[in-house]
């Protein structure tokens, strides 16, 4: 039953991937003009003479004069084989540009997700079970502060504290000596030393909202008849709460994986700029501004894929947790 469900769910994501790839491509070709136009604009701004023939030649070379569907086909058939084209701006293959940054982004996103869950789950349970206790009020107040503070501001404050009081190195994800070094155990340790600041910054507001979600869900479940049944059976308070209501209240929690991934990557742009993190966000922003369509397209496509994969993972997890879903 479960196996069939997973198969069906995976089968469904294939047409979905195809659809988002079209949308991704349509989005990046939507703005008026193309890379050549903005390239020409940059040239004329710096006072160079723009040679129309050269521009046309470029356009032809990049295939920009061809109809939409042809361009799309060209792009997607190569993308499937891992070739995302050449970045106009960097004059490098998009895949090499993106790879390092994307993997760092995903690492950061995963670390943040784990941080968020590890904090939000126990705190949420605590503040639901001890509703209106002092602890609940304190957690709630901190949670609202976390929600209300803009990430970049929080980043600045935390950077200030880290630098002034702890003397930590706060910019980027690596120390200078490891910046361009190949991957090694020492580099990983270095990453662990740096990653906590962005993780805290990116994780706070998500944690705050998850605590609220968990609290509200659990409060709904705590007075259900099946909880009374379990209590009448003689289960201890702690075990019965963990086994029954938490198990059911956790459903929405799991569904957050779906949107947590793309949000952590695209929503973190400002923070990433402030902290000068070598992640995907800033590069994507730049690519979009410069109409570097292959680079931007690859980013958008990867983001969409991540959302779909996130949804897939959360759906499968939900089915594992809740039998009612897999039997439908």
């Amino acid at each position: 039953m479960l196996f069939l469900y997973i198969l069906r769910r995976i089968a469904w994501s294939i047409p979905l991937l195809f659809a988002v790839s079209i949308i991704a491509f349509a989005l990046i070709s939507a703005p008026p003009g193309d890379y050549i136009t903005s390239f020409a604009a940059t040239l004329s701004e710096s006072g160079d003479v723009v040679d129309q023939a050269r521009l046309d030649a470029m356009r032809e070379r990049y295939g920009l004069d061809q109809p939409f569907l042809v361009q799309y086909w060209h792009w997607i058939s190569n993308a499937v084989q891992g070739d995302f084209g050449i970045s106009f701006e960097w004059q490098q293959p998009v895949s090499t540009l993106i790879w390092e940054r994307m993997s760092l982004s995903v690492t950061l996103a995963l670390a943040t997700l784990m941080f968020t869950w590890a904090l939000a789950l126990p705190i949420g349970i605590y503040s639901a079970v001890r509703k209106y206790s002092i602890g609940d009020y304190v957690v709630t107040a901190i949670g609202f502060l976390g929600l209300a503070t803009p990430n970049f501001l929080f980043a600045l404050v935390l950077m200030y504290i880290a630098v002034v009081y702890f003397g930590a190195d706060v910019s980027g994800l690596f120390s200078d000596e490891y910046q361009d070094a190949p991957w090694s155990w020492a580099k990983l340790v270095d990453l662990a030393k740096h990653i906590w600041i962005p993780v805290i910054i990116l994780g706070t507001s998500a944690t705050a909202s998850l605590v609220r979600i968990m609290r509200a869900n659990l409060l709904d479940e705590l007075h259900r008849p099946y909880v009374t049944t379990a209590r009448a059976k003689g289960l201890s308070e702690w075990r019965l709460i963990m086994k029954y209501p938490v198990r059911i209240a956790i459903n929405p929690f799991v569904s957050t994986i779906g949107w947590a991934f793309p949000q952590l990557i695209s929503g973190a742009v400002i923070t990433a700029v402030v902290l000068s993190l070598p992640t995907a966000g800033p590069l994507m922003l730049q690519a979009l501004l410069a109409q570097d369509m292959y680079l931007a397209g690859a980013f958008i496509l990867l983001l969409c894929c991540l959302s779909i994969i996130g949804m897939l993972v959360s759906d499968i997890l939900l089915a594992v947790i809740d039998p009612r879903i897999r039997f439908r």
Binding site: P225, R231, A232, G234, S236, Y244, I248, P323
Partner: peptide
Amino acid sequence: KAIRNLRGRDIAMIFQEPMSSLSPVH
């Protein structure tokens, strides 16, 4: 622990709503 030991062993209960009195996911 004293009362928990009695619950379900010496005194057991049945409730009204058989649907919601059992956990749906176990």
